[in-house]
Design a protein around this nucleic acid. Structure first.
Length: 865
RNA sequence: GCGAGAAUAUCUAAGUGGCCAACAGAGGCAGACUCAAGAUCUGUUCCCGAAGGGGUUCGCAGGUUCAACUCCUGCUUCUCGCACCA
């Protein structure tokens, strides 16, 4: 409509594990999954049976989405549709990764992951039966010497080693003696298995009963000799299965020790404090437990209390002077480093929440994965490049900029390869795949050539081919040169993209990643870097998040079927701005539908009116120009809701007033044809189907989608007409509110107009920079002083009035006064029809009524008899 | 914990110094039309008022200002993201 070529492409990103997971579950005849796809997504039985092949799933939903999107009236160039596992796309990804690799952004390392020992695979969220919230935490194993063996205790608080009074062993558990990396350790059986997954050689040599360990001594250079005490709360499936006890700072340890001592045992053990923290006594765990009045270890508040002390000590605590006096925050890492370096400590990974269970029923463990590749987002120089470009990008809404800036600097190395799923093979280790968030970063460029590259055999798509298409690097050896040239032209025509639209939860990964990748792939070609991003809000259904597992879903297809595409579009665009969350509620959607019907009926009714021109036409056209300008402005800023408020409700309410002003008998004039034409075009982007139909009915040329977008015509703006109607409307409202209040049947209404001197006062006050002293200024005038109190009162009232009137009224009023008498005389017939009585228009000073003295400029006094 | 955002009438929600008792929509209530319902239209929807006014409101408590929903400080509550998950 604005004469621009716009490309709306659509592709399907299918990389990753979910699709494979679905097909596996369907192959395994998983009831829940089959039900979901058969009943909720209504996949036909014969297609569902083929869902054991992941590609069938992909193709099925891709076609479904294309159908529904087409039904919605989206004008997408479907020739460019592709999926991210097309062989040609994989070649493109390989080229992209070569660029990243050559720039030194792809590195190799180790990484802890959730791992299922039965499936022999890492597990994603969707593979979990339980524990999808669990995070992997790095513990430090503190190695206590026990004879010629070690007893490792996992801790998050290595600095508390100075306060260890004992270890805890579970007397009901059978521990194992195992040779770990050549040294003998005593740990739980579970721990031995876990350690084997975490870069340790583990060989089990024998068993040790927990009860045998009780009362034995262990030692550590940083705390000396301490005994092992019995405690049944020790969980063999948590880390090493042995726990070091710091009763002064850990409520659990404190209570466990207290319980034993109450039975008369181990009386000689005293908590050893080592951290000073404000607000807690000398022994924080003790003071906290006593303050909370906790009786035993089973108290449900124990976890919260532990957390509280942990946080307080971490953020505000300081080690005692004899232990170095450093803040806990710093000492923690220093002690851990010291232990690792000198006292045989190693890290151990474990979940913070348990249990974590795989779909196969097996307990998930943490495994350290080698041959893990990373994208080096930690690279400061790379970050800086991205930051520099980000500063030049336009972001909608502007508030998201801080979030992007933060993300750039917060990102660390990203594990970018996976063992399972769909995707492109990782070029430097073809047993692995490129991870989904890492292969979806430059595909906007691929859109420009997607329909043409299909014609070339993927085997011919060498990096040199892409170098030519995207970077313009000439090479004599290139195959299919004609086709490549066409693609190069296509790319140059469309790229860079103007805006990428995505949801706000992708800011911290995808949306930022793609800028990183663009900066590297198009190194040195600033004119090919993305120009802007628009961040969307999320959709709610009846106030709750949509979730297919909870059944809180409403398919777009059903929405379109039930309410029609136009209704769905207008609702989605009009109920919230794009970046705000919208809430789908059927009753609200229904009212949108009625609004479209009202618009439809109104246009059909107005398109043939043949009334005489009226004075009020000028007002209507003038207002229309403002609506055009404001709608256009809103759309330029992606404010779809604002645009609809202007173009739909704004015009509708003007029409209401227009028809009211015309009175019962008069027909609307031909200017309404103009209004209908403009109105239909303004709404065409929102409700294209209705708009096309009406456009045809109106005899418009061609399709409304290609009709010129309305442009506000300054010539038609009529400030005086608008002011006149404003005055009239305000007066009518005043009369109505008085009539309602006094409950009397009027015989006549007199409108008394303010005298000229009050208008002078009005102007003086409106122009004055300091509205407080202006009254004094006015009273300096001889003629005003003569009026005395009347003048000062009027000045006060006028000051209030000016504050209450909108600037768009005051400003022109001062610039050029209006003839109030002429306005009311012209509208006399209208007013008489409205109120059914005779209307008199008089000058206030001639009216001879006490109320008339109240008359102010733009606010005549009203006398009802 | 870290980071971002939000809190406005029955609900959704606009409003970023005076246009504000607060746009718009939904819902409620009353009326018109209709045999009736729906649709449509009109009015009303914080409190008081037989004259267009007054009072009390925009999470809570303070502050700045002639003037605060809007600016500042503190507090409370909620939502979202936080990495291998697309």
């Amino acid at each position: 409509m604005k004469g621009r070529q716009v490309l709306f492409p659509m592709g399907f990103h299918v990389t990753g594990a979910p699709v494979v997971g679905i097909s596996k579950r369907i192959a395994n005849k998983d009831e829940k999954t089959i039900k979901l796809y058969r009943d909720l997504y209504r996949v036909p039985q014969n297609v569902l049976e083929e869902f054991t092949d992941p590609l069938v799933i992909v193709k099925h939903f891709a076609s479904e989405y294309q159908r529904v999107m087409t039904d919605c009236g989206l004008s997408i160039d479907w020739r460019r549709r592709f999926i991210t596992v097309d062989p040609t796309y994989s070649k493109f990804i390989e080229w992209q990764w070569k660029k990243l690799y050559d720039a030194g952004h792809v590195i190799k390392g180790a990484h802890p992951v959730r791992y299922c020992t039965v499936d022999e695979n890492p597990v994603g969220d969707h593979d979990l039966l339980e524990g999808d919230k669990a995070e992997v935490i790095k513990f430090t194993l503190v190695m206590f010497r026990y004879g010629d063996a070690f007893i490792p205790c996992a801790t998050l608080r290595p600095e508390t080693i100075h306060g260890v009074t004992n270890l805890w062993a579970n007397p009901t558990v059978t521990y194992v003696k195992a040779v770990v990396d050549g040294k003998t350790w005593i740990v739980s059986k579970e721990a031995a298995e876990k350690l084997a997954l975490q870069d340790h050689t583990v060989e089990i040599k024998g068993e040790v009963k927990g009860s045998e360990l009780v009362d034995k001594k262990v030692s550590h250079p940083l705390c000396g000799d301490v005994p092992i005490l019995p405690a049944e709360f020790v969980d063999p499936d948590m880390a090493s299965g042995m726990v070091m006890s710091v009763p002064a700072h850990a409520p659990f340890d404190y209570i466990a020790l207290r319980d034993l001592q109450e039975k008369g045992k181990y009386k000689d053990i005293k908590p050893v404090p080592l951290i000073k923290v404000e607000g807690y006594g000398e022994i924080p765990a003790m003071s906290a437990v006593e303050k909370a009045g906790i009786k035993d270890q089973l108290d449900p508040r124990m976890d919260a209390l532990t957390q509280e002390i942990y946080s307080a000590e971490f953020s505000k605590g300081k080690l005692f002077e004899k232990y170095g006096g450093k803040p806990v925050k710093i000492a923690r890492d220093e002690v851990a480093d010291l232990m690792t370096e000198k006292y045989d400590s190693v890290p151990m990974y474990e979940f913070d929440l348990r249990p974590v269970v795989c779909r196969c029923g097996n307990r998930v463990k943490v495994k350290i994965l080698h041959d893990q590749w990373f994208l080096k987002y930690s690279d400061e120089a790379w970050k800086q490049e991205v930051q520099d470009h980000m500063n030049d990008m336009s972001l909608v809404p502007p508030e998201v900029r801080v979030e992007f800036d933060r993300t750039i600097w917060w990102l660390q190395d990203w594990a970018c390869t996976r063992k399972v799923g769909l995707g492109t093979r990782f070029p430097w280790d073809t047993t692995q795949l490129i991870e989904p968030l890492s292969d979806s970063t430059v595909y906007m460029a691929y859109y420009t050539i997607a329909h043409k590259i299909r014609e070339i055999d993927s085997k011919l798509l060498t990096p040199e081919v892409f170098d030519y298409i995207f970077l313009g690097k000439e090479n004599k050896e290139l195959p299919e040169k004609k086709k490549l040239e066409a693609m190069r032209r296509e790319f140059l025509y469309w790229y860079p993209y103007d805006f990428r639209f995505s949801a706000k939860d992708l800011i911290s990964n995808h949306l930022t990643f793609q800028v990183f990748h663009h900066c590297t792939v198009f190194e040195g070609q600033k004119d090919k870097l993305p120009k802007g991003m628009v961040v969307f809000g999320m959709g709610l259904l009846n106030g709750a998040k949509m979730s297919s597992s909870k059944g809180n879903v409403f398919l777009l297809e059903d929405a379109v079927k039930e309410f029609g595409a136009d209704t769905v579009r207008m609702f989605l665009m009009g109920s919230a701005e794009p970046w705000q969350d919208f809430d789908w509620r059927n009753e609200l959607v229904l009212s949108t539908k009625k609004q479209i019907e009202r618009f439809h009926n109104t246009v059909l009714e107005l398109k043939d009116v043949k009334g005489e021109p009226h004075e009020i036409d000028r007002w209507l056209l003038s207002r229309l120009q403002a609506h055009i300008a404001r709608t256009t402005d809103a759309l330029d800023k992606f404010q779809t809701r604002q645009a609809l408020q202007e173009s739909y409700f704004g015009i509708e309410s003007d029409l209401k007033w227009y028809r009211r002003r015309l009175g019962k008998d008069a027909a609307g004039s031909k200017e309404l044809h103009t209004l209908c034409s403009v109105w239909t075009r303004l709404l065409a982007p929102f409700i294209p189907f209705t708009a096309e139909y009406l456009w045809k009915e109106m005899g418009g040329e061609g399709l409304v989608s290609f009709a010129p977008w309305p442009v506000a015509d300054k010539q038609l703006m009529d400030e005086k007409a608008e002011l006149a109607e404003e005055l009239l409307l305000r007066t009518v409202e005043d009369i109505e509110s008085i009539l309602k209040l006094i409950q009397m049947k009027p015989r006549a209404i007199t409108i008394a107009l303010a005298p000229a001197w009050k208008k002078d006062v009005f102007n003086t006050i409106a122009k004055a920079s300091d509205k407080n002293t202006v009254v004094k200024e006015i009273m300096k005038d001889e003629s005003m002083r003569k009026r005395g109190k009347e003048a000062t009162d009027a000045a006060k009232q006028i000051t209030t009035l000016i504050h209450r009137l909108p600037p768009y009224v005051v400003e022109p009023l001062v610039r050029e006064p209006i003839n109030e008498r002429a306005i009311f005389e012209a509208a006399k017939g209208f007013l008489e029809q409205e109120f059914g009585v005779a209307i008199h228009i008089e000058d206030a000073e001639a009216a001879g009524h006490a109320k008339a003295a109240m008359a102010l400029p733009f606010k005549p006094s009203i006398i009802i008899e």
